[in-house]
Design a protein around this nucleic acid. Structure first.
Lengths: 366, 366
DNA sequence: TAGCATCACGTAAGCGCTTACGAGTAAGCG
DNA sequence: CGCTTACTCGTAAGCGCTTACGTGATGCTA
């Protein structure tokens, strides 16, 4: 039972394959009667066009590729990894949605730590463009890829080669957060829970945090490094709780997952949040508003990020309307209770509505 | 700057395109000197094989397609949707990992509520097999697809047509949970928070819950229906808290997300969990062990589910080693505190280690 | 040294589709 | 009624690759 081809359709409808092709692609230049005969044959034979052949002939695959990095190869660590990937999942979803809107499909490939970038290279020959997420390949590889294929780098430094970059305004979000903690709450001693050095976002966030704190006269009294997972936050929280010296008055976690771990340990060990220590996150994942206390954090539009990457890719390959080689999406401060706002450490009438506490500009905070 | 083809390579290396192809595909029948010349040309020209052409000629695309359903078209509801999709994300990740292990790529397509199944149909012509997740297409469509393409149905009823089915043992997990609540805790009045009727998993879970409760002599004193999102759980929790009559002694939520919403509302309204009401979930998402109280739930191996779907698909298309047309993955009870175990409503020394509270068989519980 | 197997490589067909080009027919014009 | 124009449709080339088959050169045996 070979899959039917246009030859089968042509025979069935008593026309040539060219006519079949025209009927299928809704081209003009054939009578409606002929078209109807072809379409009837399509129904009868259950024909589905061969996308491979179509792509080869047409010169475009109508798929775009997305390359993401995974942090572990170890199956036993899969759930750990799961934790830190939530953000990427949202990006993928947004990209798929955006691609489908123009009839494109999304081809997914993940790159494991030491696996090289062959998977990304391979996608050059199977897609019309590539989105590379958060350092999934090296800078050299990125350059190589961008030289011969439309490439969007997601969560990346400013473009060095032919690629275009889409990212969020980490620096702005971080500044809003620090300004809030220092100016509104008067905290002068801050602790920072960093993310993995391999992440672009993580790096910009803590650098900006240190700079802004210094500029506002606050001190960084402690720095810890996690891997974006809740369990790493838990580990760090425990070492803070049981370590010598008192904890910092406010603890900035560079993503929400790690804040979740920290909050959990602090609750167990009787450290009051925000009474003893204010805790903040970054990302605004779904559960953040359901934690106790609800987490003050910085929202980044992860789905929109993926969607924007895809539309930018289209613009890049069409050569149309590409305003800039670097697209920066806004971040916003979401003030809930873990910083000490909205009633502090215990339950209030209701939580903040999701994403409602908009702080549009830096001036709007201070 | 056209992408180099094997013709360019052939010219550069001074050989024919057949030789180039053989060199690239590591076939035997050519001298190592010739092979080296070809591979050198590959490096010099930065050649990447055209996957489309290769697929057409070779007769296989080396990609497998995954079709998922999204519940909303509305952009404003995107974050709601996000909530209920976490499970699918894990499935996708597992599938991608499994596919890549054999050099396959994953092509993703989502189907929106009223969009028809054209997207799925289209994938037939672009993949070597399809995984259809949780009722993304109708039964008729499934049959149509499975008749002409290798298809795995994920989270589906037993196979009716040519498809094979991979799912988790919802019934077993649900029974374990109910037996625990009724026999261990002696709860006789249960409430149920259902998931959407469109979900296979959701339906099996509440049906089994009702049957098992009846069999054990417990009563279902209330039923609510959510959509698997935390906010729907919140809405239901609020109506329970503020409604007439007292809440059920134990509330079974058919997924963790809804339990998160319920816990949040109960905390706000001063309803003690598990003191006043025991609350349980289903799925064991990452944050469940970090909630207060940590959530008693049923773990299902979402990533493994995706991975198994892909390997089953390979077996189906190879015709090798397909033991059964229906693969059922085990679920396990994860006992934490929200049911009243492990110290009840307040913090303990530490939370349950992730996924450690294994209850392998039904007999192991009672 | 004739004969044959083996190896290395080239030639060409074909995968299923799109599309440039041309042929045939019908319609419109003076 | 002969001409042009427009429309419908068929012919054939070609997208980049794999591979069956054929050919010439080489090594081996008798």
């Amino acid at each position: 039972m070979r899959a039917p081809t246009i030859y089968d359709l042509a025979e069935r409808a008593g026309v040539s394959i060219a006519t079949v092709s025209r009927a299928l692609n809704a081209k003009s230049g054939l009578s409606s009667a002929t078209r109807a005969r072809v379409l009837a044959a399509v129904e009868e034979l259950g024909y589905v066009p061969n996308g491979t052949a179509r792509g080869l002939s047409y010169g475009a695959t109508e798929t775009i590729g997305m390359v993401v990095a995974t942090r572990t190869t170890n199956v036993a660590q899969a759930s750990e990894e799961h934790e830190s990937l939530l953000y990427v999942d949202a990006v993928i979803r947004g990209a798929e949605r955006s691609a489908q809107r123009t009839g494109y499909a999304l081809l997914l490939a993940s790159i494991r730590p030491r696996s090289g970038w062959e998977a990304a290279k391979k996608m050059v020959g199977r897609t019309d463009g590539l989105v590379i997420v958060d350092r999934a390949v090296s800078d050299d590889a990125m350059t190589w890829l961008a030289e011969r294929h439309p490439v969007v780098a997601l969560a990346w430094d400013s473009p060095k080669g032919s690629e275009i970059v889409v990212r969020i305004d980490n620096a702005h979000g971080t500044r809003l957060l620090i300004e809030h903690l220092v100016r509104e709450h008067g905290f002068t001693e801050l602790g920072i829970v960093r993310g993995p050095a391999s992440s672009f976002d993580a790096t910009v966030r803590w650098r900006t945090a240190e700079e802004t704190a210094a500029a506002l006269g606050a001190r960084i009294v402690g720095t810890w490094t996690g891997d974006f997972s809740a369990s790493s936050g838990e580990r760090i929280g425990r070492s803070i709780a049981s370590g010598p010296g008192r904890p910092p008055r406010a603890l900035l976690c560079m993503n929400d997952q790690m804040a979740v771990g920290v909050l959990n340990v602090f609750a167990q060990d009787g450290i009051s949040v925000p009474g003893d220590v204010a805790v903040t996150g970054f990302d605004d994942i779904v559960v953040s508003r359901y934690l106790s206390p609800p987490l003050t954090t910085v929202r980044q539009p992860a789905e929109e990020l993926g969607a924007t990457a895809v539309t930018s890719l289209f613009e890049l390959s069409n050569g149309t309307g590409l305003a800039s080689r670097e697209v920066v999406l806004p971040t916003e401060l979401v003030v809930r209770s873990s910083c000490g706002c909205n009633g502090g450490s215990r339950a209030r009438a209701r939580t903040t509505a999701p994403h409602s506490a908009r702080v549009a500009t830096l001036d709007g905070v201070g």
